[in-house]
């Protein structure tokens, strides 16, 4: 097996809150292999975006910091890298696109300038060359008539087009990793499908590894090969997408899957009653406690869940689950 491109080990990210320091990411580890697409899944507030910002070195200054653990990228620990080195990596070797295409582009510069700028910063292209390349990139993300649109301002474009521009910016320097933080949440369904198509095609062409952050199981099935289910800053389940969807080990994963609406009209074996996961994600105050943080919402909760944090167990050959229940199954 090849070496992982990105290897996160025992990552702990702490956030200063009014109630003191809270570990928003607690002992979190995963590997990303070259060209692979993985997905972080979980509700809002589970630390998916924080992990991404931690990798990018963009944790909110003075509020969040990496307390321990390592982020190994191509033989280099990013958690202790200098700002200057991180600037070279950002937008060049690791890129990111965001949830809000409407506000993620600078309103007072043309999209051409915003694409060309990243090429100038990392590849040292001239103004002319970067502009030409920007037109090519705009064409690559399938914006019609790129020659004319390049001089448009963001407010002259739709949400889907803006997200395409963001993708063009992110992929301009052919990064090794693209982190897509809920890239389609703010778009309509038809546009969502187009964006996923585009990302899949570009991935085939460039071989960029993708980390897709989402709470949409449909998006996961569409885009990723492997998924990591996160809850309250911890990994609760990891495995190949189809395998996890067919046979989820953690009660939380099961809950997430049963929340996906179906398009079938009648209730059948295939279309079961929609089920919600009761309750909400615990407050930051409870993060980091030595217990299963899902316990208060779990229908299978036992004494042990409230006293000890579950360990990661092999659920099947390639699937791991952090739940006391699965340990007893084995």
């Amino acid at each position: 097996m090849t070496d992982p491109l990105l290897s996160v080990k025992n990552l702990r990210i702490e956030l200063n809150t009014r109630d003191g320091v809270a570990p928003v990411i607690d002992d979190f580890s995963f590997d990303l292999f070259p060209g692979e697409a993985i997905s972080f899944v979980g509700e809002s507030g589970c630390g998916k975006s924080m992990t991404a910002l931690g990798i990018m070195g963009l944790l909110p200054e003075g509020v969040g910091k990496i307390a321990s653990g390592s982020i190994n990228f191509a033989g280099e620990d990013l958690s202790s890298a200098e700002q200057k080195r991180m600037r070279n990596i950002r937008g060049n070797e690791i890129s990111m696109i965001f949830q809000e295409p409407m506000t993620s582009l600078n309103p007072v510069y043309t999209i051409g300038e915003q694409i060309a700028e990243v090429l100038r910063a990392h590849q040292g292209l001239s103004k002319q060359a970067s502009w030409t390349k920007a037109i090519e990139l705009l064409d690559a993300v399938r914006i019609p008539n790129p020659q004319a649109r390049i001089s448009d301002y963001p407010f002259q474009m739709s949400g889907g087009q803006r997200q395409r521009v963001m993708i063009a910016i992110a992929l301009a320097c052919e990064p090794k990793i693209l982190i897509a933080d809920e890239p389609t949440t703010a778009l309509d369904v038809t546009v969502q499908a187009q964006i996923f198509d585009l990302l899949n095609d570009l991935r085939k062409q460039t071989g960029t590894a993708i980390i897709l952050i989402t709470h949409d199981m449909g998006a996961v099935a569409e885009m990723a090969e492997r998924m990591i289910v996160m809850y309250a800053g911890r990994k609760v389940e990891e495995g190949p997408v189809q395998q996890v969807i067919d046979n989820a080990g953690h009660p939380y994963t099961q809950g997430l899957i049963s929340c996906v609406p179906h398009i079938l009209e009648k209730l059948t074996a295939k279309r079961q009653m929609l089920q919600e996961v009761p309750g909400i994600v615990p407050s930051l105050r409870d993060f980091g406690k030595d217990q299963c943080l899902f316990a208060s919402r779990c229908q299978y909760v036992s004494e042990k869940c409230n006293n000890t944090r579950p360990t990661e167990n092999k659920f099947s050959s390639s699937q791991t689950v952090a739940c006391w229940l699965t340990e007893s199954i084995q």
């Binding site: 950002r90 937008g91 965001f98 582009l105 700028e117 910063a121 910016i169």
Partner: peptide, 16 residues
């Protein structure tokens, strides 16, 4: 704002 986060994620310098 979001576009400043974008600018940071591009790897631009603080001055830019």
């Amino acid at each position: 704002s979001d576009y400043i986060r974008t600018a940071k994620s591009k790897g631009l310098t603080d001055r830019e």
